[in-house]
């Protein structure tokens, strides 16, 4: 079974006749990356180092 298929409940003629995808509610904690800045020129880490110079 593909990983994606594992998320789908098996078709159940009584309670889920059309195999509606029963996904879970969203995670209550902020997903990683939510607060990250988009890389603007000058702020992108490829263009400058945040590591202290040594």
């Amino acid at each position: 079974m593909k990983l994606q298929d594992a998320k789908f409940e098996k078709q159940d003629s009584q309670s889920n006749p059309f195999a509606i995808q029963l996904d879970e509610p969203m995670q209550n904690i902020a997903a990683p990356g939510v607060c990250e800045m988009k890389p603007y020129l000058g702020e992108d880490s490829r263009w400058y180092s945040t590591q202290p110079g040594g």
Binding site: I20, Q21, L22, M26, I29, A30, A31, V34
Partner: peptide, 17 residues
């Protein structure tokens, strides 16, 4: 709510993020 037998529109909100 997902298995509601008639039509619906669900809005879900997570306050974090």
């Amino acid at each position: 709510a997902l298995l509601w037998p008639l039509d619906y529109l669900m809005i879900e909100v997570a306050q974090a993020g």
